[in-house]
């Protein structure tokens, strides 16, 4: 990937800011998401809650299904490939996906190496639990970062933990003196130039969204107030009672994330939220995949 292409890819993530990216499994759901104000959709065969329930190996979606969703909407379409599965990524690039999510939600294909994302023209988003993970993914070529959270649980606690941790680490690095940065780069196992960028700018070099367990307008606004630049909602929408209404309410809550009065009215009569599961009730911990 050329530097110009990387800038364009980071730029697309900047255009998504302040928006909500929604998981969809059919063209019909994609249309509902677009009409509700999604700034992009994530095309996948099963949403994380169902992947969790089904168990087994979870892979990239059928390209035909992805194409159906691309034809159904005018907003950007993203899709997931397995961690380290660069051929799934090549396939997604061949069908001209707008963004690839190298995702811990699917079963990892490589337990050591992530995809060398610099070899691709198409942009990648990756999950991270802390600053070290985020900068390692960026070093591999990711043009956007999201918190991992714990997908498919409807429980926002891990997304909160990851966002707080990342921002606390960024603040710490911003406060270090120049000569302390070399040691910090060694400690969190990332290149010096990326640490240096964080030190000078007080933020990641790419856009950072929240993901994992967001189920209500309040959850979305919480993540925005904690410093997320936008929100992914996976199982939270199409596992709820009234997907269109809940999706639209989450979109508005992300725009006006500091207006409690508005979020109060948006939170009324949304029907049933997805049934949540606690982290100590689940067998598969997805956030530990790919660090």
């Amino acid at each position: 990937m050329s530097q110009t292409q990387y800038e364009l890819n980071k730029g697309l993530a900047q255009m998504l800011k302040g928006g909500v990216i929604m998981d969809v499994t059919t063209p019909e759901q994609a249309k509902i998401a677009e009409a509700a104000g999604a700034c992009a959709v994530m095309a996948l065969e099963r949403i994380p809650a169902d992947i969790r329930a089904a168990g087994g190996v979870s892979r990239m979606s059928d390209p035909k299904m992805i194409k159906g969703i691309q034809e159904a909407v005018s907003i950007p379409v993203m899709a997931k490939c397995r961690i380290g599965h660069f051929v799934e990524a090549q396939i997604l690039e061949a069908v001209e996906i707008d963004y690839i999510d190298e995702s811990e939600v699917l079963s990892p294909a490589d337990d050591i190496y992530h995809i060398d994302k610099r070899q691709f023209k198409v942009p990648f988003v990756c999950g991270a639990r802390d600053l070290g993970e985020a900068l390692r993914r960026i070093n591999e070529g990711a043009a956007m970062i999201r918190t991992k959270g714990e997908p498919g649980t409807g429980d926002v606690v891990q997304a909160v933990r990851h966002m707080r941790k990342m921002n606390a680490e960024i603040r710490k690095i911003a406060a270090l003196s120049e000569d302390e940065l070399y040691e910090e780069a060694k400690q969190i196992q990332v290149p010096f130039d990326l640490i240096s960028f964080v030190h000078d700018n007080g933020r990641l070099p790419v856009v950072n969204f929240a993901a994992g367990g967001v189920a209500t307008p309040a959850d979305a606004a919480l993540m925005m107030q904690l410093g997320a630049e936008g929100v992914f909602v996976g199982s939270g929408i199409f596992k709820s009672g009234d997907p269109a209404k809940r999706a639209a309410a989450i979109v508005q809550a992300v725009t006006n994330y500091q207006d409690a009065k508005l979020i109060a009215s948006l939170s009324e009569d949304l029907g049933e939220a997805m049934v949540g599961i606690n982290p100590n009730e689940i067998k598969i911990i997805m956030e530990e995949r790919g660090i």
Partner: peptide, 13 residues
Amino acid sequence: GESTVQGKLLRDL
């Protein structure tokens, strides 16, 4: 940004 989102929010808000 996304014009579909912005256009909708202009109306909703």
